[in-house]
């Protein structure tokens, strides 16, 4: 496990959900954990939505004070830099979607690469309309990598259909994830699965996710 975990990927691939769950997982291992919300793309459905839940279990949350308000600014919290000084903490970065979201990482790339203790995960959902195939997903992967200036170290297969996700669908998607692995030369590090389906998914490195609740 590296000290810094970056979650990048295409728009709506599930980065925030995974980052939040991963931060909770690190904390549950007894590690000092910080989550950094660097999403400058999407003002709806953010890490901020889980802020209370995370802080209650002792995860430090760095996000803009005006996230989830009506201030729609593509800016990043100054406090983000603190994670490069506090080396006793594990840091989880939630990055905005696509290359446009990944540009923010460019600012931090020198620090991340200098310390060289990071995982940079490419999160992919093959049920999203613009990443239906390994080829399409690979194209986005390269765009994101070019924007972030940080090489990817692994793939997270987060293929799902929201409430209609089935274990079978996830298992089927593994073939596409392996093809993306061949194309990119990156390992498939995790297959993320809604918690109640996790046991049915017979794949290596399955990671169960708790999803944000909604009432509509």
């Amino acid at each position: 496990m590296k000290r810094i975990s970056l979650f990048c990927g295409h728009y709506g691939s599930g980065k925030t959900n995974i980052a939040v769950n991963y931060a909770k997982y690190l904390k549950a291992q007894g590690l000092k954990t910080t989550i950094v919300d660097l999403d400058i793309v999407n003002p709806y459905f953010r890490t901020k939505d889980s802020e209370k839940e995370l802080e209650d279990i002792g995860v430090r949350v760095i996000s803009l004070p005006f996230a989830n308000s009506n201030v729609d600014l593509p800016s990043i919290p100054a406090e983000s830099y603190s994670v490069f000084n506090k080396k006793d903490e594990y840091a989880v970065f939630d990055i905005g979607g696509d290359d446009s979201g990944a540009y923010v990482l460019g600012r931090f790339a020198p620090y991340v690469k200098e310390e060289d203790d990071f995982d940079n995960f490419y999160v992919v959902n093959f049920n999203r309309p613009l990443t239906r195939s390994a080829e399409e997903a690979f194209e986005v992967l390269k765009e994101v990598e070019n924007a972030s200036h940080i090489p990817f170290t692994g793939i997270i297969n987060n293929t799902n259909l929201g409430e209609e996700t089935t274990a079978e669908g996830i298992i089927l998607s593994n073939a596409e994830a392996m093809r993306l692995s061949d194309l990119s030369g990156l390992p498939v590090c995790l297959t993320t699965v809604r918690k109640d389906l996790a046991e049915e998914v017979d794949l290596p490195n399955v990671f169960g996710l708790e999803l944000q609740k909604k009432y509509w």
Binding site: G12, N125, N127, R128, P129, T159, G162
Partner: peptide, 16 residues
């Protein structure tokens, strides 16, 4: 992959 796709409402408008 499945017949259905996972989309944002805004994307669904555009594709439709």
């Amino acid at each position: 992959m499945s017949e259905k796709v996972l989309m944002k409402g805004n994307e669904a408008i555009a594709e439709a």
